[in-house]
């Protein structure tokens, strides 16, 4: 008995050994950068022309400057507006499609084809997709030419010069890139609902609409919250699409500048203090949102 135990623990030592690559890489490339980022947020450290200012310890001054002086609120607002513009149509579409795909009565044919098509935009390089939309929606681009030839537009419309159209395009691209992914997630949730519940509702004479609103949706709540919050976390990280679409300017009048674009700007201008403070704020915000995800999914598992 004693011998066997020592053999087992000798094997189990290998657990630590196999964890070494992960641990080493994590510490070097994630933990140290995280600590440096937090550390830098307490220092004044930027370039004034060719002159380097700092690093001087300033405590929480960078945070104060960000919260009161800068345009942080505006950029947060931009990010949220563009996220909502993409998320609302995305969730409506995904709910509809996943309900159809999983409906045993409808028995839709060609499901694999449709799933393949709707997931496709998710794999496209966001930078290239955004560049594509920039060219297609440019003043001399094909969208203008098609809309004019169909007599929908009279004159060329400059999509890049209007706040609504730029934000709308970013939202549209985000929706297009993510609704396939959301559909597949929701489908997994819907297939977990036992058929007997649907049958019981049908026997009671419920219409398809009633079944969807009164049976499917309430049971889908945990995965729905998961989708909502992971999408929100992803939305806070929005960067590639608006960055390429507006060439990093967030034009018109910085109305499409997101938080990460703002961070990217500070990183490029080597304003490390502000970049650090902004990073820490984003980290805290993401941390809170992730904690909610964990609670929701943990509850789901207990049930």
């Amino acid at each position: 008995m004693k011998k066997k135990k020592s053999v087992v623990s000798r094997y189990n030592r290998w657990g630590y050994i196999f964890l070494i690559p992960f641990a080493v890489v994590f510490v070097i490339f994630q933990l140290i950068p995280l600590v440096t980022t937090i550390y830098n947020s307490f220092f004044e450290n930027y370039m004034s022309g060719l002159k380097k200012v700092g690093p001087n310890f300033v405590g929480l001054a960078n945070y104060g400057k960000l919260l009161t002086g800068g345009d942080l609120g505006k950029y947060f607002g931009n990010t949220m507006i563009m996220w909502i513009l993409g998320f609302v149509p995305q969730i409506v579409l995904s709910l509809l499609l996943s309900a159809w795909f999983t409906n045993p009565q409808l028995r839709l044919k060609g499901q694999r084809f449709f799933k393949t098509v709707i997931y496709l935009p998710n794999l496209i390089m966001a930078a290239a997709f955004s560049m594509l939309f920039f060219t297609l929606f440019s003043k001399g681009g094909p969208v203008n030419s098609i809309l004019i030839s169909m007599h929908i537009f009279k004159d060329k419309y400059d999509f890049m010069a209007h706040i609504g159209s730029v934000r709308g395009l970013v939202g549209f691209m985000n929706c297009l890139m993510w609704f396939g992914n959301t559909t597949i997630l929701l489908m997994a949730g819907m297939m977990g609902i036992p058929d007997s519940l649907y049958e019981a509702a049908e026997v009671d004479g419920a219409t398809p609409g009633q079944i969807f609103w009164k049976v499917t949706l309430p049971l889908l709540k945990p995965i729905f919250i998961y989708v909502l919050i992971t999408s929100l976390i992803g939305g806070l990280q929005m960067f590639d699409v608006p960055q390429i679409l507006t060439n990093g300017s967030g034009d018109p009048m910085r109305s499409s500048m997101t938080l990460i674009m703002y961070l990217n700007k500070h990183l490029y201008s080597k304003n490390f203090g502000m970049a650090g403070a902004l990073s820490v704020m984003l980290l805290i915000l993401t941390g809170i949102l992730s904690a909610i995800v964990f609670r929701v999914t943990a509850k789901d598992e207990v049930q």
């Binding site: 950068p33 440096t36 980022t37 980290l283």
Partner: peptide
């Protein structure tokens, strides 16, 4: 490991570039 899954790469970018 599950906990660090939620740390976005962008928030450590500053430290990463310096490193």
């Amino acid at each position: 490991i599950l906990g660090i899954m939620c740390v976005p790469t962008q928030v450590t970018a500053l430290g990463f570039v310096k490193l």
